[in-house]
Simulated assay, not measured.
Amino acid sequence: MLPYLEALIRRAQDSGQLRAEVTASDIPVMQQMLVAAQSTQGRRPDIWRRCIEILLNGLRRRPDDLPLTTPGLSDELVEQVMGLVRPAPARD
């Protein structure tokens, strides 16, 4: 999935719509954030809409953007966190 996200992100950045610091590894993490927002136990099943609005506004490039201060995750770590790659078995 990450190579497709990289291409999409590159196009959005080239068009000036997306912050330069955003990487493909940021997207699966944000997806998990939205999944967590849906777990409002049925009290606010629409809260994901608010969360995605906040996320999208934060992703958009603006003239007054402050630089991001924390680096993103590596592709390998994103895959591990998302359960896409199983850690190598420990050697005895």
Rank of each mutant, 00 (worst) to 15 (best):
A12C: 09
A88P: 12
R11E: 15
G42C: 11
P71Y: 11
T23I: 07
V85M: 13
E21R: 15
E53H: 10
D65Y: 10
L73N: 08
E21H: 12
D64Q: 12
L68N: 00
G58A: 02
R62Q: 14
Q32G: 13
Q13V: 03
A7T: 13
Y4I: 02
T23K: 14
L5E: 12
L8Q: 11
L55I: 09
L56K: 02
V22P: 01
T69L: 05
L73Y: 13
I54C: 00
R44Y: 13
M33A: 14
E21K: 07
V78E: 10
P87N: 09
G16H: 00
A88W: 06
P63E: 14
V78Q: 09
L5V: 14
M82F: 09
M33R: 07
P87V: 08
P28T: 14
A7M: 12
V81E: 00
I47G: 05
M33Y: 01
S74G: 07
E6R: 04
P87S: 11
L34Q: 07
P28V: 07
D65A: 12
A7G: 14
A37G: 02
L55F: 00
L56S: 05
C51T: 09
P63Y: 00
R60K: 04
Q13E: 07
T23A: 03
R10L: 11
Y4F: 13
W48T: 15
R60I: 00
L73G: 02
L8K: 10
A90D: 14
I47C: 07
V29H: 01
R62V: 09
R50M: 07
N57V: 01
E53Q: 07
A24H: 08
M1S: 09
G72T: 13
G58F: 06
E76V: 02
R10V: 05
L55H: 01
D75G: 05
R86Q: 07
L66H: 08
R61T: 04
I27N: 00
G72D: 06
Q80P: 04
P71Q: 15
S39E: 14
R50K: 08
S25G: 14
R19A: 06
E6P: 08
V22R: 01
A12G: 05
L56D: 10
P87W: 09
G42N: 11
L56N: 14
T23P: 06
M30I: 05
R62P: 08
S74I: 04
L84D: 05
G72C: 03
A90R: 03
G16R: 00
Q31L: 06
L68E: 03
A88S: 10
C51F: 02
L18D: 11
L2E: 11
D26K: 01
P89Y: 01
A90K: 02
S74H: 15
L8N: 15
R49S: 15
P89S: 05
S25C: 13
L18M: 11
L34T: 15
P89L: 02
R11M: 08
L5A: 12
T40E: 10
T23W: 04
L73C: 05
A36T: 15
P3C: 01
S74T: 10
D64G: 10
I9Q: 11
T69S: 11
I47A: 15
Q38W: 03
L5I: 14
Y4A: 06
R11C: 15
I27H: 00
L66K: 15
L73E: 07
